Amino acid sequence: MADDPILRLRGVHTHIGPYHILHGVDLDVPRGGVTMLLGRNGAGKTTTLRTIMGLWRAGQGSVHFDGRDITRLATPAIAQAGIAYVPENMSVFSDLTVAENMRLAARSGAIDEQRLDWVFRMFPALKIFWHQRAGVLSGGQKQMLSVARAIIEPRQLLIVDEPTKGLAPSIIQNMISVFCELKQTAVSILLVEQNFHMARSVGDTVAVMDDGRVVHAGTMADLAGDEALQQRLLGLSLAAHQ
């Protein structure tokens, strides 16, 4: 993995109530490109993301972002440090318009028009519904808005949890195009995804979790080309999930 990762977790343990979910997670996210975080359901992927963001606290271990220890920082301070987080539940304000949702995501309160045009090129539906309440959007459009909110201002790291969950194939293809374009910018991306066509299409590096630990780390290309490794780590073949 990278010698100077933008994000580094070492020996991270997380408890949720009486449950010990993460059991010493070691994870490096290189600067630039997309790191896929894969694993079976219940492996600890979402808990890892929420621990990075300070939504759940690491009981042991450390989280470093851009060389800074953020393990004990509050969530707003972690976001201010340059990390944007898109949870899997399509986090939008349904009673506000698309425009109001986007303005709230801009830390200054004012949206850079050039960057907004760039977002509209990736998500043209948001321009169409700009003055409509977010609650009237379809599930796919809400997911577009969730991602758009996270990238309306430049960030160093974008963390996204299952952006294609429940989406139609045409919208999944749109998401693939979006993340391929984001890869051309300065942002680094940590992406949890169950759609393996998406994972193979956009992933550069990969970490696989099982039972609260990272059990494999390497390149996405190597994992995509090794069916025996896929079966051992994930219990399935990527070729069966086009």
Rank of each mutant, 00 (worst) to 15 (best):
V147Y: 05
W130V: 07
G203H: 08
V202L: 07
S146T: 04
E193Y: 02
Q173G: 14
R149C: 00
L191R: 03
M102L: 12
A125H: 15
V178W: 14
D117V: 06
L104S: 09
R149T: 00
L137A: 03
I128G: 13
V202G: 09
V192W: 11
G109W: 02
D117C: 09
P169W: 12
L167R: 13
Q114F: 08
S201T: 11
M209Q: 09
R107S: 12
E193T: 03
I128A: 14
I176M: 10
R103C: 01
A110W: 12
Q194I: 03
E162S: 05
H197T: 05
G203F: 11
P154V: 02
P163S: 11
G166D: 13
G135F: 07
P124Q: 01
R149K: 09
P124N: 01
M102Y: 03
R133I: 11
S170C: 13
I171F: 02
Q141H: 07
D161H: 03
L167P: 05
H197S: 07
M144S: 13
S201N: 00
F129Q: 14
D161Q: 02
M102T: 00
S170F: 14
K183S: 11
Q156R: 15
S138L: 04
I111Q: 06
V119F: 06
F129T: 13
W118C: 11
L137R: 08
L158R: 07
K183C: 01
G109C: 04
S138Q: 06
T205Q: 08
D204F: 04
F120G: 08
Q141M: 12
G203W: 06
S170N: 15
I189L: 09
F129E: 08
R155W: 09
F120V: 10
G139Y: 02
S108N: 01
R155D: 15
I171E: 03
K165C: 13
M102R: 00
A125Y: 07
S146Y: 01
A148N: 03
A106E: 01
A125D: 15
M198Q: 10
P169Q: 12
W130A: 11
M209K: 08
L145C: 04
M175P: 10
Q184N: 12
I151W: 04
